[in-house]
Design a protein around this nucleic acid. Structure first.
Lengths: 110, 110
DNA sequence: TTTTTATATTGCAATATTACGATAAATAAT
DNA sequence: ATTATTTATCGTAATATTGCAATATAAAAA
């Protein structure tokens, strides 16, 4: 098969899975971290920062964009990418909630 | 190809990507949420909770275990699974750090 | 001991992902 | 107008993932 059975899961579960999947590759984690580091929207540069060919980087950027993790706007003949804060705040609050619950329960039976 | 070039990225980036990838499927998100909900280690039940065949669920559990998100211990003829708090706390603090940085910067140029 | 219960493994088909060379498209610079 | 620069898309090969039926394994129950 290879196709995910999304229809059986909740919208929230699918949304989290989509965001997580987009970060499920080190190059895409590196892109997010680079966008954080440079402290600004980046027009270009990303290809030079990564050990991957330009079409590959372009593809990774597209996936991050499709997942909603980054935004891109055309700026002359370059494209300006930056992090979508909303998506990251969804992930932040999701994992904060889980960690809080685990902290409160302290099951620890395994 | 299809194989990820992990060797060019930092250990941290690969670690985050591995955890994120493991959560990049709604069934695996659902498993984590179920383990949270039942408030205990679960021996069995997981297969009945998911709309997937037993071998498929077993495979998803294996991937969560390989990524370090859950632990499993043999309990008679059943297996007792529970969340590995450490892995979730890594994700929690990673996204908290990113969100904090974004909050502080407020770039918002795209 | 045979049967049941719970989980894992194997094998396979369908599809998705990763990576890149070649090329296109679109604006900027000369 | 031509050339350079920047990014996207196409095509394709290699590999990975998803899902399940069939089967194996191993302990519990009968």
């Amino acid at each position: 098969m290879g196709a995910t059975k999304t229809e059986h899961f909740t919208d929230k579960q699918n949304a989290i899975a989509t965001l997580a999947k987009a970060l499920g590759h080190p190059a895409r984690v590196a892109i997010i971290e680079y966008l954080m580091k440079v402290d600004a929207c980046i027009c270009g540069d990303i290809v030079n920062e990564l050990p991957l060919a330009q079409p590959t980087v372009s593809q990774h950027l597209k996936e991050l964009k499709n997942a909603g993790l980054i935004k891109g706007s055309i700026e002359g003949n370059a494209i300006c990418y930056c992090i979508d804060e909303n998506a990251l705040s969804i992930l932040q609050s999701y994992f904060a909630t889980i960690s809080d619950n685990l902290e409160r329960k302290k099951i620890n039976c395994c």
